[in-house]
Write a protein that binds this DNA or RNA. Structure first.
Lengths: 132, 132
DNA sequence: CGGAATCCTCAACGATACTG
DNA sequence: CAGTATCGTTGAGGATTCCG
């Protein structure tokens, strides 16, 4: 932890600080329970169908998947593509903004990974069921 | 959005992916309502007292401030320093781990800032009261 | 297949009062 | 000053059913 680097970054934060903290703004967009998992699995395989996404994300209900996708679409992270066929087919794709967020989360990925290897479970554990 | 950079990062994620996604791990640590504001104000001024922190964070209850600080302490982001005086005095400090997280959030800061300047309010707005 | 509608539960969070 | 204890509230999320 280089003190100089830290202080420089703080100075940058202070100078560029709008009324509402941008970090909170970002977290409002991606903070709800299923946003990251959805973006994550779209990153691993783009253009997934609704039910396909439901399977890969795992344990998510229709309600939450639809709601999350609508919000992600509204915030411009995901694009919905509908094929006019019978039966209907819909695919979901990361937008450039969505991809840029995934890259942004890269540092948080590394930070969490390093920490997880040191500590064990964080303070507020969540049930983490996986089927075999 | 450079496709090559994106694909390289995905490959890195896939290769280094533990069972539980590290991003979710990070968000579990900092995701609750007051964690970021607390870390933020400790970054702006380190070593704040309990009530001082309560004032600068703003509108936080004793319950939540104490709970959040305990969790941050448990997760190693904050260090509590107690002076054995009468009346008692306590100061809170960012640890190196806490500072590293603040730096990590830098990208999310920039991402949110850029987005906020384009869009307006995100999908799930939160009341954002400030006293004059 | 890809959802929408409805109802319900619970845990995070808030409010208030009290204390070493 | 720096909290703890208790209780009340609310909204995110889950479960279930139904639809074009």
């Amino acid at each position: 932890m280089d003190p100089t680097v830290f202080d420089q970054k703080i100075a940058y934060f202070k100078q560029n600080m709008p009324p509402q903290c941008p970090i909170l703004y970002s977290l409002k967009i991606i903070g709800s329970k299923w946003k990251i998992p959805i973006l994550w699995h779209l990153m691993l395989e783009d253009g997934q169908h609704y039910n396909q996404l439901k399977r890969t994300v795992g344990n998510i209900t229709n309600t939450m998947l639809t709601k999350s996708l609508r919000e992600l679409e509204h915030d411009g992270l995901v694009r919905r593509h509908s094929y006019e066929t019978v039966p209907p087919a819909v695919t979901y794709h990361l937008t450039d903004l969505g991809k840029s967020l995934v890259l942004t989360m890269g540092e948080l990925f590394d930070w969490g990974k390093a920490l997880e290897e040191q500590h064990g479970v964080p303070t507020t554990p969540t049930s983490n069921r996986e089927e075999s």
